[in-house]
Design a protein around this nucleic acid. Structure first.
Lengths: 114, 114
DNA sequence: TGACAATATATCCGTAACGGACATATATTC
DNA sequence: GAATATATGTCCGTTACGGATATATTGTCA
């Protein structure tokens, strides 16, 4: 047995960007791609291969699902599943620990600093 | 042309763990492996294949270098290069933005909260 | 003292992910 | 009407991951 609670242990940057984007709201692929380049979502460039390939994997692993609705026949909207939400949350918490360590080591400016 | 300033754009979890561990102090491979499972360094399990394979790549890309010194003939010590330091710092800053976004979305508890 | 776990590094190799190239079609803008 | 943006999709070479396996030493414990 042993259904893994988080089959994706450390998320790849592409997976994180997509899940984080969908944590904000339901979105379609192209909108996710636009989000990904923004610093808040990781600032990465998602080529179509990575974007749709990763979406397919996330659908397969039930991290995201199609909403079924659309405002434009060309768009396919996706939303996080509860599993997906758990997974991003765990990943953000994990990254938070690493960032805290980086801050402690002086790799980045402390919060309030100028 | 085009020497990339940061050949490793978003770092893989394994690379981040290794660089973050070495940002603290010079270490040998096995010590890095022990560090990696700690939450502060990402909490990931580095198998020997990933560990030494990644170390070789980081040496090749001049992110880390051997110190040459050792306190035990079996141990090979590594340290960050200035390039490696820049790279981890940039990565921590990048992740910090994502963590801030995750926090804003309520994925993790805000700092002061109990 | 014999066995087992931990230390320490190294290679091999199958699987998975990445990411650029290419393709296609519509809508918009100039 | 041409170019750009929107929107999704496939293909495929390169790379990274990570478990298995190997080897040798040191430490522990019954």
């Amino acid at each position: 047995m042993s259904e893994r609670l988080t089959p994706h242990a450390p998320l790849t940057p592409a997976v994180l960007a997509i899940l984080l984007s969908l944590a904000e709201d339901e979105k379609h692929g192209y909108a996710i791609m636009k989000d990904a380049v923004k610093p808040e979502f990781g600032g990465i460039t998602l080529g179509p291969g990575t974007l749709y390939g990763t979406i397919d994997r996330l659908l397969r692993d039930r991290m995201i699902e199609e909403t079924g609705t659309t405002d434009n026949e060309r768009r396919r909207y996706y939303r996080l599943t509860s599993q997906g939400l758990k997974t991003v949350s765990a990943e953000i918490a994990r990254l938070n620990a690493a960032v805290a360590q980086g801050r402690a080591l002086g790799l980045i400016q402390p919060k309030g600093a100028r």
